[in-house]
């Protein structure tokens, strides 16, 4: 009997070091946790465990760690955080594949709201700035638009997987307080909406948005974005393709075409 109790208490534990912050303007501090191991655990299920039993490794009680998550299947982009130094989705990050202690930090390129919760508003502003949508509203039924060629649809679909998670901005050395760079995600969305046969009708508006202050020219070609994107989006190909299109557009503007 005593033997079984010992085996359960000595069960495997997962060690966490979490960077926390009480308020947006508060200074960050770290807290350590040990979570009982379960097979196939991911970072979110470990955080849920801490939420159920918010006790630190040293036995002190603490406030439950805050984080953001929705879909739990890597399509919503809400649970982006820095895990062992790399920005990624907490839901698809398996504990078995991580080195311990597992260090969780918020993506500090964005304003931190609390603990691991960040504010990705700048990304949504960027999508508005580049008009990342297809205008189809009219005062009457405009009818069906032109069809998109299958050969283009195949790569456009890859770009449409962007979930505005912010990992590419966190990885980019040119997204910071001293730089107004819009970031890779919005540039790739311009490519997506400009290839669409209806979206193409407003292609110049999106290109001009990329040719404003803090637009596409802020890219310094470090290519960290394409290495970090959880959806494997060819971000650097999108940026280079938009470099070509904005360059062409610049010459057309000069020549008054």
């Amino acid at each position: 009997m005593a033997g079984t109790t010992t085996t359960t208490t000595a069960a495997r534990k997962v060690k966490f070091v979490i960077t926390r912050r009480e308020r947006p303007d508060a200074s960050p501090f770290t807290e350590e946790f040990e979570v009982p191991y379960r097979p196939n655990m991911n970072v979110i299920s470990a955080l849920m465990e801490i939420q159920r039993n918010p006790v630190k490794t040293n036995g002190e009680k603490t406030a439950p760690v805050c984080w953001e998550s929705n879909c739990l299947e890597e399509v919503c982009g809400a649970c982006s955080m820095v895990v062992n130094g790399k920005p990624r989705q907490a839901c698809s990050t398996l504990i078995d594949k991580l080195e311990q202690p597992i260090r969780l930090e918020p993506m500090s390129t964005f304003p931190v709201v609390r603990d691991l919760v960040i504010n990705r508003e700048r990304m949504f502003k960027a999508l508005k700035k580049v008009k990342a949508w297809i205008p189809i509203d009219g005062t009457y039924d405009l009818g069906p638009g032109p069809r998109l060629a299958e050969s283009k649809r195949q790569w456009a679909y890859e770009l449409s997987k962007c979930m505005t998670c912010g990992v590419c901005l966190e990885a980019c050395p040119n997204v910071n307080d001293r730089n107004s760079f819009i970031g890779p995600a919005a540039i790739s969305q311009v490519r997506l909406f400009n290839v669409h046969p209806t979206g193409e009708m407003n292609a110049h508006e999106r290109l001009e948005a990329l040719m404003e202050e803090g637009g596409i020219e802020g890219c310094g070609n470090s290519q960290n974005c394409v290495r970090s994107c959880p959806k494997g989006i060819p971000l650097t190909t999108s940026i280079a393709a938009m470099n070509r299109d904005t360059t062409k557009h610049m010459f057309k503007q000069w020549l008054g075409m």
């Binding site: 130094g85 790399k86 990885a171 050395p173 040119n174 910071n176 001293r178 730089n179 802020g218 310094g220 070609n221 470090s222 290519q223 960290n224 290495r227 970090s228």
Partner: peptide
């Protein structure tokens, strides 16, 4: 150069080294 961060510690990829 002033506008750029150095993050080769976290992202030690060849192109990021070239960027820095």
């Amino acid at each position: 150069a002033y506008q750029s961060n150095v993050n080769t510690g976290r992202f030690s990829y060849g192109r990021n080294w070239a960027f820095t």
